[in-house]
Simulated scan of single mutants.
Amino acid sequence: MRLLHLHERLSARGGAERHLISLLKHQQGAHQTLLAVGFDDGSLPVAEQELIGPWLRVKGLARRGLRKRGEAAACRGLAAVIAEFRPDLIHLHNLMDPALLELAASSAPTVMTVQDHRMFCPGRGKLTPDDRLCSAPLGRACLACFEQPDYGRRMLALTRRRLDALRGMGRILVLSRYMARELTLAGVEPERVRVLPPPVDLPPALPGAPRRHHLLAGRLVGRKGVGQALEATKMFRHGAPLRIAGDGPLAGELARAAMLSQGRLSFDGWADRARMNQLLAGALSLWLPSLWAEPWGIVGLEALARGVPVVGTAVGGVPEWLLDGEHGFLVPPGDPAALARAADRLAAQPEEARRMGRAGRAWVAENLRREDLMRRLGEIYREAGELPTA
Rank of each mutant, 00 (worst) to 15 (best):
I244V: 10
I244F: 10
G246V: 03
G246S: 11
D247G: 13
D247S: 15
A251I: 01
A251N: 00
G252N: 03
L254D: 09
A255Q: 12
A258R: 03
M259G: 11
L260N: 09
S261P: 14
Q262T: 03
G263F: 08
L265E: 06
L265C: 05
F267M: 12
F267I: 01
F267L: 05
D268H: 15
D268R: 13
G269P: 06
G269R: 06
W270V: 02
W270G: 02
A271W: 08
A271I: 10
D272T: 03
R273D: 15
R273Y: 08
R273T: 14
N277T: 07
Q278T: 12
L279C: 09
L280S: 00
A281M: 06
G282K: 10
G282F: 13
G282N: 10
G282Q: 14
S285N: 01
S285L: 04
L286T: 12
P289D: 09
P289I: 08
P289T: 07
A293R: 12
E294Y: 11
P295A: 01
P295T: 01
I298K: 09
I298Y: 04
V299T: 15
V299P: 08
G300W: 10
G300F: 07
L301P: 00
E302S: 02
A303F: 12
R306P: 13
R306E: 01
G307E: 13
V308R: 11
